[in-house]
Amino acid sequence: MNDVSREVYRIVGETLRVPPGELRPDLPIRAIPNAESIKMLTVILKVEKQFDVEIPDEATFGIETVGQFDELVQMLAAERAAANAR
């Protein structure tokens, strides 16, 4: 797990109050008891702030699993890093 992933899992776990060991990549986000829309929005906002990225609206409500969310953030964070390097 790289630094971005670690941060993503930390933010998801803290915001949705899931113990660290229980967050697996294939865990459906909707199966997490606290993951209603407003809580998910808080996750998105924190991640956006942390990595200086913008998560598209479709993804905000369309992401199915924690792993998918992690992959998306990795991709956006890499794009951001590349843009910053230029």
Partner: peptide
């Protein structure tokens, strides 16, 4: 927050 969730999510 509530407005965003309602207005953005018309999937």
């Amino acid at each position: 927050q509530m407005a965003y969730v309602w207005l953005a999510d018309r999937r």
